[in-house]
Nucleic acid binder design. Structure first.
Lengths: 236, 236
DNA sequence: ATCCAGACTATTTTACAAATTTCGTCTGAA
DNA sequence: TTCAGACGAAATTTGTAAAATAGTCTGGAT
């Protein structure tokens, strides 16, 4: 019946609950736990070889992050995806990161700008796909991509704003995973990212923000244009 | 169509965990659970007459909201307060609510604007203090005040942004509680709020945002000027 | 200062009880 | 026959409790 096998090994986290939270998050983001899927304790206890307490704890944390939906007396499910939610997330992320980027550019130190250049250098040297034929997601590229975008906003001076941006990135990542194959190689992400870095180095905040927001919108558009992503919704 | 209204509202928590989360949040916001205080399960089980599982669950949720600090293997504590954190929260809330207010004013329907006028009407008719002498916090005023500010941003079109604003409001409420006595009657909150409503009705977004941000800053300044609020920090 | 044992606390496991939802079946009226 | 509602069994979620495990902290000895 269930041949589901969690992928991420137990590692650094100090408690089962924290470790489980991380492992579950990865499996949610990568789509191994599917939108709408029921998350029964019994099933999770077997899949992750753990007791009910730490699992419950992890699910409660993930519910606050929005990756898991919690209904009293009805347990946990993987949060559904929808066209509306994708639009709203994209909008919200744009608003948050616009502010964070502007603040970073305005108040960020020289260190911050150098960090952007460095993060871009590393990302630019890494292949997005492991195979030349289609898109074979390269985990290292994904990691560096995330770090690059994070560096753009890290100088904003508000840990909360960064936390919220991280959260939006996570929520959007699920959508990205669903249509990543379609986007490749239609877009030239390299150039989009490079243009952002140029604008940052030039100190042109309006241009940098414009490019960043367009970057987010383009990502959303690719997904929205893919009819296979939202099987449940006919009127996308 | 259906005029039946259940006596007990749906949103009343139906599990211990949810109920506890609400009760704990209130006690945290009102300062009955003090910043830095250790939250031992044993103590909480006795205080709230509940088992450890629902308490643990509630604490995990509150940790995500930032009201409770969780350190692996070291249990839960009430999140500390600090001058830096107050500054950062005020800054972050200003950024978030600026965006939310602008969006509400730009895209919000006529309903939204009427909602603002109505919320202000209700707030303006309510006394802030229950006694004339000092400040004797009026729960009804607090409720309406919160609803008023929430109405200003509710039309922004992003549930996530509203959630984040709510969270910042909660985190800041603790600081407000600590020095509310000092602020009364120095400030004229009535006029500050009224001016915001006027700007909103005039459709002057820049003025409305300016007044709103100044309102937040003024609240923070009152607290920062109060030496009794941060007993632990000598260099405020 | 570092190390260590013992006390203490937090975390996890396990088992079970209680409450609630889910789901299939049945009934009786249209 | 059809079907809305009633009913009840089964499954699931939630809560309780107690004991085992694992980590942290303290204070004294090296």
């Amino acid at each position: 019946m269930n041949e589901f096998q969690p992928v991420v090994p137990m590692d650094l986290a100090v408690t089962q609950a924290s470790s489980l939270c991380d492992r579950l998050r990865v499996d949610l983001l990568e789509g191994r736990l599917k939108p709408g899927q029921k998350l029964q304790l019994k099933f999770l206890m077997a899949a992750y070889q753990s007791g009910q307490t730490p699992i419950r704890e992890a699910l409660n944390r993930l519910a606050s992050e929005g990756l898991v939906a919690l209904r009293d007396q009805r347990g946990f499910t993987v949060t559904e995806i929808s066209v509306d939610e994708l639009r709203e997330l994209t909008k919200t992320r744009s608003w948050l990161e616009e502010r964070a980027l502007r603040e970073s550019m305005q108040t960020g130190s020289a260190d911050w700008e150098e960090g952007v250049v460095l993060a871009w250098h590393r990302l630019s040297k890494t292949r997005r796909s492991l195979s030349d034929a289609g898109l074979d997601s390269n985990p290292e590229w994904e990691r560096l991509h995330r770090l690059f975008h994070r560096q753009l906003i890290i100088g904003c001076g508000s840990r909360w704003l960064i936390t919220y941006c991280d959260q939006q990135v996570d929520l959007l990542y699920r959508y990205r995973q669903l249509s990543a194959r379609k986007a490749f190689p239609t877009r030239n992400l390299f150039e989009e990212h490079e243009a952002i870095v140029r604008a940052v180095v030039d100190g042109d905040a309006d241009r940098a923000v414009g490019l960043l927001v367009a970057h987010f919108q383009a990502s959303a558009d690719v997904i929205l244009a893919d009819p296979s992503v939202f099987p449940g919704e006919r009127f996308a």
